[in-house]
Design a protein around this nucleic acid. Sequence first.
DNA 1: ACACCCTCCTGGAGGC
DNA 2: TGCCTCCAGGAGGGTG
Length: 287
Amino acid sequence: MPELPEVESIVRQLDECLPDKTIREVNVRWPRIVDRPKLSDFCRQLEGQRIRGVRRRGKFIIFDLDGTDAAAHHLIAHLRMTGQFLYCRAGESSDATAVALEEDKHVHAILRLWKEATLYYRDVRKFGRLYLVKDAATIVGDLGPEPLGENLDGEALYDILHDHRRQIKPLLLDQQVIAGLGNIYVDEALWRAGIHPLRRSHRIDRPQAHTLHAAIETVLRSAIEMRGTTMHSYCTPDGEAGHNQSSLAVYGREGQDCPRCHGAIRKIRVAQRGSHYCPHCQPKPAE
DNA sequence: ACACCCTCCTGGAGGC
DNA sequence: TGCCTCCAGGAGGGTG
């Protein structure tokens, strides 16, 4: 499942190969992948637009476009669980890949670019969505601060935690509160900070909030360095898997040893999500 | 304000 | 081997 580090890795690659490419033709095979506008407008308005750059906001990928008409658009993508972008240029070793992708039943949208390049959107579970809007804020305007941004330090996180009285895990997963964290990195950050996923956010004191902020930063930065975590289907646009899975301390490690205390990792449900933690390092709150 | 449940989807895993 | 059921989950929507 692509979270901030995975989306960041994808965006960095896309921003290397896509700028100045013009979209020649758009082919959508699974119409529901397009959220807005209606499919015919989506294709018509995309065709002929030049890609200026690719950036990330939270888990959203934003393609800044530079159309010929006055209406500059933004193509915005959310990969949800299994979405992938795959980039192919003709005349390279990617030819075999491109042929396979053309036939791939999980490829739901194809952007043909000038010249000879193609961007495929592939998504096994079809949860991902594409948006074409004039104002990116209509999609990403409600997001909380970037966890690696300058606006979020330990103090700011402390304030956020004390603005709510929620369980810490669902709070950190809430994109309106902080943008970009998902199930894997929240579990990892809470383990590093020694905070139980059910702790009430407003019960976390100032030093703990600073520790948690540092943990979030460490977990995300090292995952970006490893180009993301590949649990199932995640890969970058060149088809490479990430390498961060070997660095995970708790996620997906139920019953295995905690790297810190060597006790057994436990898995519980928190807010309908599988949540991994160490009962010894992250003691259950008495609250 | 917050918890909880449902929906969207499919492939993979486990049971028998 | 094969079939069936269950499970994974990001986000949005609805309910209590």
